[in-house]
Structures are given as C-alpha cells and as structure tokens.
C-alpha cells in the first residue's frame, strides 16, 4: 500500500522539480537562424562579396583608385592620377540586389544583379552562403569617330558570371571562393582570349568590432603565354561606422568592375605596381523592413 502511495507521488514530485527554462530551450533549439554579416561590404576588395543589400536599402558606392605607388615622387606616388567609379545598389528583397555604376576607366558603364541562392545557418544545417552574380559592362571609350576601326556596340560589351561561395567560420573569420567566367566580345586575339575562366579566393579577419582586414586573389586558368595582363591581388581594411563602410585598398588592379579586374589587370603587384584606393559606401533605408 505504501508502495502504491509512493508511485502516485512520483508525477507530483517530478512536476515541481522540472525546469521551465529547459522546457523553453528544448523548443527553441529546433529553430535555425541565418548568419548575419559574413562580410561588412558588398565588395571584398575589388570584387564582389556574397552580401546582398537588405530589402528596401539603397547603398551608394564611391570607389577611387590612384596611380601606382612606384611611379615616384614626381607623380606623388600615384596620387596625381585618379580613377573613380560611382555606383548604387538596391535591395529588392533580402536576397536579390540590383546595381549599376560608371567607371572612369575606359568610361565604362556596368549593371548587375546579385542573388543569394543559399544562406548559411547558425549551428549546422547549411554550412555556406552562395550568391549568383551577373554583370554586363560597356566601354564607351573610344568614341566612334576616334576609333581606329569601325567599332560597334557589340564590340564594347563584356559579360561576367560568378558564383560566390562563402562561409563565416566565426564572428571574426570568413572565407569566400569565386568561380568566375568573363566573356569579352572584342579582344586582341594575338594575346588575349574572349572567354576567361578564373577562380577567386578571399577572406576577412576582424581585428576589432568595427575593423576588418581583407584579402582577395583571382587566378585565371586559360591565359595566353604572351598575355600582358596579371592576376588581380587586393588587400583592404574595412572600417565600419554606422551607415558607412570605408574600405582602404592596396591592389595591382586599376579597374573597379570585374571585366577590368579579372581580365585586364595591368600592374604587377610584386614589381610595386600597387594602386592605393578606397571604397566608401553609405546605406539609406528607403523602405521600412517588413515586420
């Protein structure tokens, strides 16, 4: 009889001892969240990062590259020469951004989209974020009347397709791989190819809450042996303050679009053909985020 009494008491005792918090946590742990801020900016250094803009957010991007540091004191180590790109990117949804820009290098206009196909989740599930990136660029220089041959609209175009694959390993460290394809309609076929395959790799290391160091390298696979161009290398420091990101850049590439950077990088980094530069972004929330 006493045993029966004890058995009856068990659910009673168990109930008063159970932990409400543990009960909540067990429900909560079933949900998974996407990681935030794999990179600070939409640009890793010269090239793109996986980051799309948030829905309703407009980002203005002002990029600047000086001449090469090894041009000497007469050129004030490249500061006398300056190239700029003015750009804007807008988040249609949290996963889809569109953008456009104009670079003074070859007076190039470019338009692009970036779409997050897959998003990395916190605590397992999906290990990487993958974005697709597509860009079309048109060189408007030289003018038709200045060209040495009959240049057509088609000749001026180039197209870029990239897969951006990134993983945020920790809050401080992220890596990205960028398989890339560039097609230029018009090239000098004695030393260039129309279609270039390349693989980029890059990463960032946060050194403080608002500052990170970035690096990026693009390797081209099918390069003619007499190509005058080099693989693009870039190093950067990102400084983030409120709605701005300042990126200070050292690179052998002058161009600020992928067609220039991947296929037409003239400088040899290790000979000192290094351009100082910066990207400055400013974000504006045009539409309130959905609740």
């Amino acid at each position: 009889m006493k045993l029966l009494l004890l058995v009856l008491l068990i659910p009673y005792v168990a109930f008063s001892q159970e932990d409400l918090l543990k009960e909540l946590e067990s429900k909560e742990s079933e949900k998974s969240e996407f990681v935030d801020a794999t990179f600070k900016g939409s640009r890793l250094v010269n090239g793109q990062s996986v980051e799309t803009r948030h829905a309703g957010e407009l980002e203005l991007i002002f990029s600047h590259r000086f001449g090469t540091i090894n041009s000497g004191i007469y050129e004030l180590f490249g500061l006398d020469e300056a190239y700029i790109r003015l750009g804007a990117e807008y988040g249609i949804t949290d996963r889809l951004s569109v953008g456009m820009g104009r670079t003074s290098v070859d007076k190039t206009y470019d338009g692009y989209f970036r779409y997050k196909l897959i998003r990395q989740t916190i605590g397992g599930g999906m290990p990487v974020t993958i974005s697709a990136y597509g860009n079309a660029a048109i060189k408007t220089s030289p003018r038709k009347e200045d060209a040495t041959f009959d240049i057509t609209m088609k000749d001026r175009m180039a197209y870029v397709a990239q897969l951006l694959i990134a993983r945020k390993f920790s809050s401080a460290f992220s890596l990205q791989l960028m398989p890339s394809f560039v097609h230029q309609n018009l090239v000098d076929q004695t030393q260039e190819v129309n279609s270039t395959f390349a693989l980029g790799a890059g990463g960032r290391m946060k050194v403080s809450r608002s500052v990170s160091l970035n690096a990026e390298y693009y390797y081209r696979f099918n390069v003619p042996s007499n190509s005058p161009y080099n693989n693009a290398i870039g190093f950067g420091i990102d400084i983030e303050t409120g709605g701005h990101v300042f990126q200070l850049v050292l690179t052998n590439s002058l161009g600020m679009t992928e067609r220039h950077m991947i296929t037409e990088t003239q400088g040899n980094f290790f000979d000192g053909d290094i351009h100082m530069g910066f990207n400055i972004t400013r974000a504006f929330q045009l539409k309130k985020p959905g609740k």
Partner: peptide, 29 residues
C-alpha cells in the same frame, strides 16, 4: 516563470541597424 527572448527577432526601422545590433552589440550568434 521563465522567458526566452530571441535576440535576432528584434525588428528595427533600419535593417542595417538590426544587423549591427546583432553583430556588434548583442553578439547574437
């Protein structure tokens, strides 16, 4: 009583603010 408040579910007027709130201040990951 017990409450569990998921930090990532705070909604701001500006998404960038929300990102900074999670990434830099509350370190929600």
């Amino acid at each position: 009583f017990a409450f569990l408040i998921p930090i990532k579910k705070f909604r701001f007027d500006k998404s960038l603010m929300e990102e900074h709130f999670n990434e830099k201040y509350l370190e929600s990951e």
